[in-house]
């Protein structure tokens, strides 16, 4: 619904769009316009949680690379792909199972279960890394979210962790990244908040892949055991406590809230439809199950 005006450029709309930028949800007071739009657009308010559920719909905040038409086309493509497969809500720390078709094993599918240790990039380039320990061998696979060879993405356990990335699991004891391949998906209530798993992992002794002591990690318990005085000191030297006050840096690395609302209002109706469809399918499935047993 929301996309319709932008997709079909009608002359009456054009007059409004050319000179005044249509900010659908401005914080500024605009009494006249509000009255005009109130009937149409109140239904299109995307929930504020969308920026966490669908982070890849926000473009790269680098100003030099931005272009409204490119971003719009990219979002349309993303929605087209999402209409084919269900890309669920997940976070770093969630356990996923990805089923994809493999050119090296034609006619078969490959399924990989693992914990999401990193999510990065935006738009059609969005990707994530899954990690698991299979046969006592740590394995990681990088998946692109909008890769058309991916057949299914299931969330087996939806939860968050204390850090933005879990790359330190590579240096942690293997039990923290071991997950059963035949895990059953855990059912969560509708509307329940995503639980935060506050588990703290134990690292192996040095050498490590990165200097974890410099990254202010919250999900590691024994980082202090392996540090010498010199490392502690250098870590302290590299601290940047002023960065949280650096408003310009924050501004450059994020999309302003107004713009976020604009973007999500554009894709809201389709995403919402897909969510409803997903719920309906779930109910159908749960209804079918007892008949199967009987």
């Amino acid at each position: 619904m929301m996309l319709a005006p932008s997709r079909l450029v009608t002359p009456s709309l054009l007059r409004q769009t050319v000179f005044t930028r249509v900010v659908t949800f401005s914080t500024k007071a605009a009494p006249k316009e509000k009255e005009q739009y109130s009937n149409k657009q109140t239904t299109n308010v995307a929930p504020t949680t969308y920026r966490f559920i669908y982070p890849e719909f926000l473009p790269d905040p680098k100003v030099e690379w931005r272009n409204p038409i490119r971003e719009k086309l990219e979002r349309l493509d993303m929605i087209d792909r999402r209409s084919q497969i269900d890309i669920p809500e997940f976070y770093v720390g969630s356990i996923l199972a990805v089923t994809s078709s493999d050119p090296h094993a034609a006619g078969k599918v490959s399924r990989f279960v693992g914990i999401c240790i990193q999510r990065e990039r935006c738009g059609l380039r969005a990707r994530f890394i899954l990690r698991n320990v299979v046969d006592e061998q740590g394995v990681e696979v990088l998946y692109e979210m909008y890769d058309p060879t991916i057949q299914k993405i299931e969330v087996l356990r939806l939860e968050k962790r204390l850090d933005d990335h879990l790359l330190y699991l590579r240096d942690a004891l293997p039990e923290y990244s071991t997950f059963d391949t035949n895990m059953e998906p855990e059912v969560m209530e509708d509307g329940a908040p995503v639980p935060v798993n506050d588990i703290q992992v134990r690292l192996r002794p040095r050498p490590w892949l990165e200097r974890w002591e410099r990254q202010n990690l919250k999900g590691v318990s024994n980082i202090d055991e392996y540090l010498t005085d010199k490392r502690r000191r250098t870590a302290k030297e590299h601290e940047k406590p002023w960065e949280k006050y650096d408003l310009m840096k924050q501004y450059r690395s994020t999309i302003p809230e107004e713009e976020q609302k604009e973007i999500y209002a554009e894709v809201y109706s389709q995403l919402h439809q897909m969510e409803l469809q997903r719920k309906r399918n779930k109910r159908k499935r749960s209804f079918v199950k007892p008949t199967k047993l009987a």
Binding site: Q137, G138, V139, E140, V141, L142, Y143, T149, R170
Partner: peptide, 18 residues
């Protein structure tokens, strides 16, 4: 048969060089 190096998407990366 399996490397620690960075790999392309969908190709597994291992924790040791096998």
């Amino acid at each position: 048969v399996g490397l620690k190096q960075k790999q392309k998407p969908k190709i597994p990366k291992f924790d040791s060089n096998n």
